[in-house]
């Protein structure tokens, strides 16, 4: 029987396992054509819970799972009907919710794992299977840019003398789920005053992605709506989703394309 236990090994695989502060989504897993065994091994390492299982389907897994506990993720990944046994340690009482959060070991009964639907198996690739792990979307996009060294690269690029590089760096920083990183936030925020208009435009977009404080974002967008460059003002309107006051402000712009774009967004808001 194969056992995966906690350790310091980092497994390179086409999947990402994250923990977050989002309620009911403290655990997030996203996998694309990932080996199930490798995925479970890494999940075990990350969670500190020993997984025990015998034979697993030799399939590639596509899954997007989010939930409050490791068990929730496993049920999403393996199927709600999968039978599992749990070993809890140091718990008293019969509080099911508490127990579900603190298993020390989990046995996955492979006999209960669902076989892949026959219709989804491509004749030329018997290692594929229908994705059965997607229950709801992960609320952040994970890619190689989440590696710390790539974030450092983007931060250096954001200070480049080449405005093209600064612009591309901001586009990259906007994609990262790094709203709580002061370095990322500072790099983006100071770019709103860059001497290159395209950089300012991308800074507006990046701020719309990472700024957690609606009042602060409102201030940045107001500043951008006053920019001398038409493109920056248009990027500001792009970033406005439901703030009708800002859109009303944009209706006073001296450029007809800004006024018309703001009007169309207002109309769309009113229709929904």
């Amino acid at each position: 029987m194969a056992t995966a236990s906690g350790g310091n090994t980092i497994v390179q695989a086409p999947f990402v396992i994250r923990q977050s502060a989002i309620p009911e989504a403290e655990w997030m897993l996203e996998a694309e054509q990932a080996d199930l065994h490798g995925l479970l091994r890494s999940f075990s390492e990350r969670s500190g819970i020993k997984f025990h299982y015998a034979a697993l389907p030799t399939v590639k897994v596509d899954a997007t799972c989010a939930g409050p506990t490791v068990i929730t993720i496993l049920r999403c990944l393996l199927g709600a009907e999968t039978n599992m046994l749990f070993h809890y340690a140091g718990l008293a009482g019969n509080d099911t919710n508490e127990q579900e959060r603190q298993p020390k070991e989990i046995w996955i009964l492979a006999s209960s794992l669902s076989p892949p639907p026959i219709a989804s198996v491509r004749p030329s690739d018997c290692g594929s299977t229908e994705s059965k792990g997607i229950s709801r979307p992960v609320e952040s996009v994970q890619n190689e840019l989440t590696k710390e060294q790539d974030v450092d690269f983007l931060l250096r690029q954001a200070d480049s003398e080449d405005p093209e590089k600064r612009m591309n760096a901001l586009a990259g920083l906007a994609r990262l789920d790094k709203a709580d990183s002061p370095e990322v936030y500072d790099a983006v925020a100071r770019s709103i005053s860059d001497n290159d208009a395209r950089v300012r435009g991308q800074a507006v977009y990046a701020l719309s992605q990472i700024e957690n404080d609606p009042n602060a974002l409102n201030n940045y967008l107001q500043q951008a709506l006053q920019d001398s460059e038409l493109g920056v003002r248009l990027m500001a309107i792009d970033a406005i989703e439901s703030d009708t006051a800002l859109l009303q402000q944009a209706l006073q712009d001296n450029d007809s394309s800004v006024r018309d774009y703001a009007a169309s967004k207002l109309q769309a808001i009113m229709q929904h």
Binding site: S140, A179, S208, Q209, D213, I240
Partner: peptide, 9 residues
Amino acid sequence: MKKTNKFIK
């Protein structure tokens, strides 16, 4: 628009 940890725009 506030984004917090959510990337869905």
